[in-house]
Design a protein around this nucleic acid. Structure first.
Lengths: 206, 206
DNA sequence: GGGAATATTCCC
DNA sequence: GGGAATATTCCC
């Protein structure tokens, strides 16, 4: 019942790179490729050994790959590598990573950096950013440098301001905590004194 | 091998509402609840019939639910309803939908609109919006070709990081304050109780 | 083919 | 507990 998940974990290579990037502002060449690319690549490599080349394989030149039998590919191959069995979800990912469909007659997909024997090159493939709709395309026309630099400056300004406010807040919170702590001490002292007095009082009364 | 996926599809109720909302600006009462909520609810209802109430069940009042055995829940229950078997991913979703953990001693989760017998009410639960931070994601990494002054970008990166850390700190401080306040209440209660007892004791002795 | 929502993962 | 990245789904 949980075969899928276990398989998934085993095939996952244990080095996917969700979340943190750890390469901010640096060349993207050395980063760990996204799981999707690794799995798709491995699927093709392993396919050669497992004789599923009738279902999916590299093209003759190794410059693209072909899904020969979408039905079998979806039913058998996809769930071994991914958390679904939908061909269209697979296609969606290919598009996200910039693959192009080569022919209208067969399911052949190509990406410059996705080729047989070049697992290393996968790291150079980047996900397409979802363009922010904040700025409609028509506003980005001319005088780009001016526009970008001013918006960038503006953003930096905002960031610094937020930053300053956060620091102020931090100080206030810290002061609140100090007050709390002081009150705590007073209460404890009060309590302890109270206990003392009452003990002596009780003793006296006895 | 593909059992998971087929099960998934059968249990999915076929009416999830990914994508289009078709109710923009209208009362949220009539919308189809998100798959996550439906599945979690059904899991509890079906659990009663299937006797997995030792693993997960509603609390006595039906106002919250308890995962009694996280290990079994993760291994057996989760993959029957979701595309994973990670308890932490399940928790992440609960947090996303605003559930609160009720106790530090057991895995009990509560949401005002998530109660036994009220499947209809699920539609009123909304996903927490990710606060559109001052700083849109698109300014973070895109346009590597642009070669804008890298020192500036670097600067922003640092600013954003500091900003993030400050927010984290703020949260922690707030939590400290909450703890302090709670302790204060306890001390006051203690003190008042102490005074009561001793007054009666003193009275008796007089 | 891609926009956008939800789901899953990783990290702090 | 939540931010943010990738994955999966649904829709145009």
């Amino acid at each position: 019942m949980v075969d899928n998940n276990e398989l998934e974990l085993n095939l996952g290579l244990g080095n996917n790179n969700f979340g943190g990037d750890a390469h901010a502002g640096q060349s993207p060449r050395q980063r760990c490729p996204p799981p999707f690319l690794l799995k798709t690549y491995d699927l093709l490599e392993e396919g050669e050994a497992e004789d599923i080349t009738k279902i999916v394989s590299w093209n003759a030149e190794g410059t693209a790959f072909v899904v020969w039998s979408p039905a079998e590919f979806s039913e058998l191959t996809l769930p071994r590598y991914f958390k679904h069995n939908n061909f269209s979800s697979f296609i969606r990912q290919l598009n996200t990573y910039g693959f192009k469909k080569m022919s209208s007659k067969r399911w052949e997909f190509k990406h410059e950096k996705f080729q047989r024997g070049c697992r290393q090159m996968l790291g150079e493939i980047t996900r397409k950013k979802c363009e922010p709709s904040v700025f409609p395309a028509y506003l980005k026309s001319s005088s780009e440098e001016n526009a970008t630099s001013s918006t960038e400056e503006n953003n930096q300004q905002l960031l610094m301001e937020e930053n300053k406010n956060l620091k102020k807040e931090r100080l206030e919170l810290q002061m609140q905590i100090d007050e709390c702590k002081a009150l705590e001490m007073k209460l404890l002292a009060c309590l302890s004194q109270f206990m003392d007095t009452h003990q002596t009082k009780v003793r006296r009364l006895c």
